[in-house]
């Protein structure tokens, strides 16, 4: 007979596991499967072909050193990933450092932490378009620059450019760095820092030899978040780039609107593999489960 008590954990996990299975594991497998299918203008056809992948990299090697569309897109994405990662890491680290070591009461720490977190629970699109009045052609920044005589004509690179995309990424996703780094820093035993101080360590030495190494798990988790989000993004790049800057997500999106599902799936697989390669080394360095 089935023993409910012995299998209680399995039963409890079942609804959660079902949703993850039905809406994550199965769809992911379908993406991989369909990337080998054939298609015509109105339907997708079960098959096992590699043409979808060949199409992505068609002429890419031959045309080197000129970049084909796929290579150019990936290099553009990687550039955004690297710059965003660097800025969010630095900002997130300093914000967490302030919250953990410069705010004296726990209550104040929680209030300020929430202050950082609240925008995360509001609309991303609104937070993107909220840059328009500041960065637009007649925006606050341009009119101020013209008024104080820095420039004669409005700067065009402020909005709908790589600059505005990067700015939006930093604006939207620094929180993903702050939270895990904050979490790691809160676990640092204060007596370690006092000991370092007593032994004559400078602030910089404490930072370099105690705080940064002990914040490493948080730094890695935050990095994984930021890297994967930026890598797969197409909405921020679309809205803030004025639909002019290419991204892998955008390619997938366009192919889907033309119902070219197998081509979109092949692009998705390449995207996942690229992202996995970036974060694989990082997950090797830390066990996420122990850090919560």
């Amino acid at each position: 007979m089935f023993d409910v008590k012995r299998h209680s954990a399995t039963l409890l996990s079942f609804p959660f596991a079902f949703v993850i299975f039905a809406f994550f594991v199965v769809p992911l497998c379908l993406v991989i499967m369909v990337s080998f299918w054939d298609y015509n203008s109105y339907s997708i056809i079960p098959d096992f072909i590699f043409t979808n992948y060949q199409d992505i990299f068609y002429g890419c090697v031959k045309s080197l050193p000129d970049l084909c569309t796929s290579f150019a897109t990936y290099i553009s994405s990687l550039k955004f990933v690297f710059i965003t990662w660097l800025i969010t890491l630095l900002t997130g680290f300093l914000v967490a450092l302030f919250l953990v070591f410069c705010v004296s009461t726990l209550q104040m720490q929680i209030v300020l932490f929430l202050l950082c977190t609240i925008p995360f629970w509001t609309s991303n699109v609104i937070r993107m378009i909220s840059w328009i009045p500041l960065l637009g052609r007649n925006g606050l920044v341009n009119s101020t620059m013209q008024n104080i005589g820095l420039t004669d004509s409005p700067a065009e690179w402020l909005l709908y450019s790589e600059f505005s995309v990067t700015l939006a990424f930093v604006h939207l996703y620094t929180l993903f760095m702050v939270v895990p780094i904050f979490n790691s820093m809160m676990r640092i035993d204060r007596s370690l820092i006092e000991a370092a101080h007593d032994a004559g360590a400078s602030s910089f030495q404490t930072l370099a030899n105690i705080i940064i190494p002990l914040s490493r798990p948080g730094i890695i988790i935050g990095s994984i978040f930021v890297i994967t989000i930026v890598m797969g993004d197409f909405i921020t790049i679309g809205v803030m780039g004025g639909q002019q800057i290419p991204s892998v997500g955008k390619i997938i999106n366009v192919e889907m609107t033309y119902l070219q599902f197998p081509a979109a799936a092949a692009n998705a697989v390449i995207l996942i593999i690229t992202t996995l390669m970036i974060i694989f080394a990082m997950t090797k360095l830390v066990d996420i489960r122990k850090e919560l």
């Binding site: 809406f23 994550f24 769809p27 992911l28 993406v31 994967t228 989000i229 890598m231 797969g232 993004d233 197409f234 997500g249 997938i252 999106n253 889907m256 599902f261 979109a264 799936a265 998705a268 995207l271 996942i272 992202t275």
Partner: peptide, 8 residues
């Protein structure tokens, strides 16, 4: 996993 992939 990138959201666009899950959506797809």
């Amino acid at each position: 996993v990138p959201s666009i992939v899950i959506s797809l």
